[in-house]
Structures are given as structure tokens and as C-alpha cells.
Amino acid sequence: MNLPELFQLDFGLPWVLLLLPLALTPLFERQRDSIGIPSLVWLPADTLGQTLRKVGTCVAAVCLATLIIALAQPGTSKNYIERIGRGAELSVLMDRSASMDAEVRRHQLKPGEQARPSVSKNQVVKEALSWLVNTRPDNRYALTLFNVSAIPVAPFSDDEALILAGLAASGIGRGPNKTNMGLALVSAIEQFDGRSYSGSRAILLVSDGGARLDDTTQQQIRAGLTRNNISLYFIYIQSSANSPDLETVGPDAEDVVEEIALHQFFQQLGTEYRVFQANDPESMKEAVQEIDQQQNLPLAYLEQIPRVDYSRWFYIAAAICCLVLAVLTTIRVHRL
């Protein structure tokens, strides 16, 4: 409780403050506060007693005042705390369908370049993402796998071990060969709902295929991304030479190829969208690095904190005053 905050005190029940003049009542002496004595002639004069009486009166007044103030529920409601968000909130949405177990397509070997052992796409993605998690532990990650439906693996947390474990587990077994990307996207967007905005937000969609999204889903995704201010990164892993290039332009490319349709839809979104086409482990790594650079800006933002109620402190003060009064009362002579 610092000073500027105190000046912004407001009251839940301000009309209770009308009772404040009651705090002056202890200043009026009542007959029963003192013991009637036939004559003061032989009472010795004493200053300590007078001081104690004054203290008692003041404490009683203060006690009443604090009680009334406490009843008026003082507090500060317009409190902002400046926070600096380090790192981003990245929701990794990873395709876990059967196709992801296939080997990643390698770029054409240049002369003199040695062939390397083949790696599955899942493996590549896992490694690249693990690298990201390891280098930027400040970021908060969530992991969702999807195939037929979204599988939330880890909610947003600062615990990178959880994400790493989730990533490691994504390589086990084989997935079904169907994907429902729309459902997965909606579910990933929902993860941001209700979270305070503490850093830039992004969904990292890792997939090797596209999906045709119906109108309802499209609208949901568009609204969700705008509402939560999420940028979308689409890492498109080309599986084979047959995988279409997203930039292919043609009169009917959009209608024919799912991936291109998806890409076009994403481009039409109001929010930020980037696409990375990875066709080998290196390009995958580059894509992830680029995302990392974009999302590593510190973000200062004001967070409004809930109303802080100070009535407790006033009650404590009143209780202390009562204690003082109780002590004074116990040492007082009640009858001669």
C-alpha cells in the first residue's frame, strides 16, 4: 500500500461514512464513565491518570472511526500493474496423422553432398520444436496434437519439461490417416480464451497436408484469431515430390488442391499469417528460427488488477484499539 494508491481510495458503501460523526461521541463525557465520589478534596493530583484518560478517549474515537471506515469498505479499484511480458505464447498444433510418419522429402542432392540417413517428418518436427523450447524457455507453450480430433497434450505453462515430454511422446505409435484441421484450429484458439494478454500470441500449425474447411469453421477461426489477437504460422511440410507448392497459382488450383485452398483462406485472415514450406530438416529448422525471432520481443502491458479491499486493515486497527480499551477497562476501578 503506497501513497498514491491511498489517495485513490473509494468506498463500497460510501453512505456509511455519514456515520463518521459518531466517532466523536467518546469525546463527550458520560456520567457512568466515572465513579461518583463525595469529595475530590483528598484525592491526590495525578498527571498520569489524566494522560491515560485522554489516550483512552482518543483511542475510542479512533476505534469508532476505523470501524465506520471499514464498514464503508474502502479499497482501490483502478489499479494497474505494468507487466513486461517476456516471450510469447505459442500454441503448437501438430499434425499426428499417419502421413507424418513418412519420411521427409529431401531436396535434390547437390554434387558432392553426401546422402544422410532418412528421418521421419515427425522426427524432424519434434527436433526442431524441441530446439525452440530449449532455447526460449521464457515462452509459454501449449501442445496440441490433432488427427481425427484435437488431442490437447499440454496446456499453457512455463514448464518446458512438460512440452518436451509431450513432444517426445508424439513420436510413439502411428496415427490414423484422417485429419480434421478445422476442429484442431478451433480448439487451439480456445486455449487462448480467458488468458490475459501477456505476450504476443501465435499458433504454430505444423502439418503436411491441407484441409477444406466449411464456412462455419472458417468463420469461427477468423473470429477467434481476431478476438485473441493470434498470429498464425503454418509450417507446411512437403511430404513428397507430389506435394503441391502452396504458391502455385492457377485458375482452379484453389478448388482442386486442399493445401492451396487452406493457404488462401489463411491469407485472407485479418491477422498476421506466415507460411513456411519445409522440405527437409534444415529448412524446418530455419522456419522455426525465424518464428523464434519474430516472437521474442518483450511486451509491456498494463494489467488491471481486481479491486483491493483495505477494510481488513481498518478492522485490524479497530481491533487493536479495542484491545487498548479493554486493557484500560480492566485496570480501571469499577466500584469503590
Binding site: E29, Q31, D33, S34, I35, G36, I37, P38, S39, L40, L43, P44, A45, D46, L48, G49, Q50, L52, R53, L328, I331, R332, V333, L336
Partner: peptide
């Protein structure tokens, strides 16, 4: 007088004057 270690708030019954003393 009352026992020591007490606080006496006295009031003259006739003149209503007050005197406080620590005994």
C-alpha cells in the same frame, strides 16, 4: 483508597468536577 495499580476516573458528586488518577 482502592488497591494500587488501578485507574480511577473520579467525579465529584456535587460539583461534577472530574479527576483521573493512576493509583
Amino acid at each position: 483508597p482502592p488497591a494500587a495499580g488501578q485507574l480511577l476516573f473520579a467525579r465529584d458528586l456535587e460539583s461534577q468536577q472530574r479527576r483521573q488518577l493512576w493509583i
